[in-house]
Amino acid sequence: MRIGKQDAPFTAICTSDADSITVRGKDLVGEIIGKTDFTSYFWFLVTGVEPNEDQLFFANAVLCALAEHGLVPSVVAARMTYAAAPEALQGAVAAGLLGCGSVVLGSAEVAGRFYADCVADWRESGDDINAVALRNITRLRQTTKAIPGFGHPQHSEGDPRANLLLDLADQRGVSGDHVAMMRALQAALPETIGRHLPVNVNGPIPAIMLDVGFPLAALKGIGLLCRTAGLIGHLTEEAERPIGFILSGKAAEGIEYDGPEPTDQ
């Protein structure tokens, strides 16, 4: 059965023969191994071109910003999975990554798509950026209450990671249309939702990465890549200082049963 489009049987990523391995037009052994860092290689694999200085700087900054954030749900899932199946490190990593959705970790992708749509509207309409921000928030609020990239349960003055990334983008002169739109959206929040919200890290990350030329379609991959590193760190600790069953036990203690009681026979 033919499913989907099947008329372009090509890939531009990698090929090999008996003597060489070619990646994106470069010889893996002769031009890449020992001659490039992994972040540059990641950018090259995704885009097909080597990153410039600013692209490499912000790719590194963003990967560091997201790699670790404590015992978040993805980490808890991974550590409990490893406790139950210590022979399957890959299964525990996968368990952590499978929970990276629109609420946790994948929210940068959601924000990026929203900002990109807003910027496209701004460019096509020629309207004032503040008017564009207002109407796009209004449109989004018809289907959801959350405006991606804003609000934080702990950092009322803004996520410190977000604040630093924005400062760095301004200092290095890479803040472009997407960062400008993110700021316009934040400024429009009091008028549209009735209150100010601080920026969280999922605002600047997609805005800056889009402004420096990273593909929209690959935004979620940034979080998946760096969180994999964080998960491996947690799982290495889990092997040496296990807390997976403690986490499981605390969950059982913390949740009370409120279902029906069995009827007498």
Rank of each mutant, 00 (worst) to 15 (best):
residue 189 L to I: 08
residue 189 L to D: 11
residue 189 L to H: 10
residue 189 L to W: 10
residue 189 L to M: 14
residue 190 P to L: 12
residue 190 P to E: 14
residue 190 P to Q: 11
residue 191 E to H: 06
residue 192 T to W: 03
residue 192 T to D: 05
residue 192 T to H: 04
residue 192 T to S: 13
residue 193 I to F: 09
residue 194 G to D: 12
residue 194 G to S: 12
residue 194 G to R: 11
residue 194 G to V: 12
residue 195 R to H: 15
residue 195 R to D: 13
residue 195 R to I: 11
residue 195 R to G: 05
residue 196 H to N: 11
residue 196 H to Y: 11
residue 196 H to T: 14
residue 196 H to L: 11
residue 197 L to I: 09
residue 197 L to H: 03
residue 198 P to N: 01
residue 198 P to V: 05
residue 199 V to G: 08
residue 199 V to C: 12
residue 199 V to S: 13
residue 200 N to D: 09
residue 200 N to H: 08
residue 200 N to E: 10
residue 200 N to G: 09
residue 200 N to F: 08
residue 201 V to D: 10
residue 202 N to R: 11
residue 202 N to Y: 15
residue 202 N to D: 15
residue 202 N to W: 14
residue 202 N to Q: 12
residue 203 G to K: 02
residue 203 G to V: 07
residue 204 P to M: 15
residue 204 P to A: 13
residue 204 P to H: 09
residue 204 P to G: 14
residue 204 P to R: 04
residue 204 P to Y: 12
residue 204 P to K: 12
residue 205 I to R: 05
residue 205 I to L: 15
residue 205 I to Y: 09
residue 205 I to V: 15
residue 205 I to Q: 06
residue 206 P to E: 15
residue 206 P to H: 08
residue 206 P to M: 13
residue 207 A to V: 12
residue 207 A to T: 07
residue 207 A to G: 07
residue 208 I to K: 06
residue 208 I to W: 12
residue 208 I to M: 11
residue 209 M to P: 03
residue 209 M to G: 06
residue 209 M to H: 05
residue 209 M to R: 08
residue 209 M to A: 08
residue 209 M to V: 02
residue 210 L to F: 10
residue 211 D to K: 03
residue 211 D to L: 12
residue 211 D to Q: 07
residue 211 D to M: 06
residue 211 D to G: 05
residue 212 V to Y: 09
residue 212 V to N: 05
residue 212 V to C: 08
residue 212 V to G: 04
residue 212 V to I: 15
residue 213 G to R: 03
residue 213 G to F: 08
residue 213 G to T: 02
residue 214 F to W: 13
residue 214 F to D: 09
residue 214 F to L: 07
residue 215 P to D: 03
residue 215 P to Q: 01
residue 215 P to L: 03
residue 215 P to Y: 02
residue 215 P to M: 04
residue 216 L to V: 07
residue 216 L to F: 04
residue 216 L to Q: 06
residue 216 L to D: 01
residue 217 A to H: 06
residue 217 A to L: 00
residue 217 A to W: 02
residue 218 A to H: 02
residue 219 L to I: 14
residue 219 L to Q: 07
residue 219 L to A: 05
residue 220 K to E: 08
residue 220 K to R: 14
residue 220 K to H: 09
residue 221 G to C: 00
residue 222 I to D: 04
residue 222 I to M: 08
residue 222 I to E: 00
residue 223 G to R: 00
residue 223 G to D: 00
residue 223 G to N: 01
residue 223 G to L: 01
residue 224 L to T: 03
residue 224 L to A: 10
residue 224 L to D: 03
residue 224 L to R: 04
residue 224 L to Q: 10
residue 225 L to H: 00
residue 225 L to N: 00
residue 225 L to P: 01
residue 225 L to M: 01
residue 225 L to C: 01
residue 226 C to I: 07
residue 226 C to G: 01
residue 226 C to Y: 03
residue 226 C to E: 11
residue 226 C to D: 06
residue 226 C to N: 02
residue 226 C to H: 02
residue 227 R to Q: 09
residue 227 R to N: 07
residue 227 R to C: 06
residue 227 R to G: 03
residue 227 R to S: 09
residue 228 T to Q: 01
residue 228 T to H: 05
residue 228 T to Y: 00
residue 228 T to V: 00
residue 229 A to R: 04
residue 230 G to S: 05
residue 230 G to M: 07
residue 231 L to D: 02
residue 231 L to H: 05
residue 231 L to Y: 06
residue 231 L to F: 05
residue 232 I to W: 08
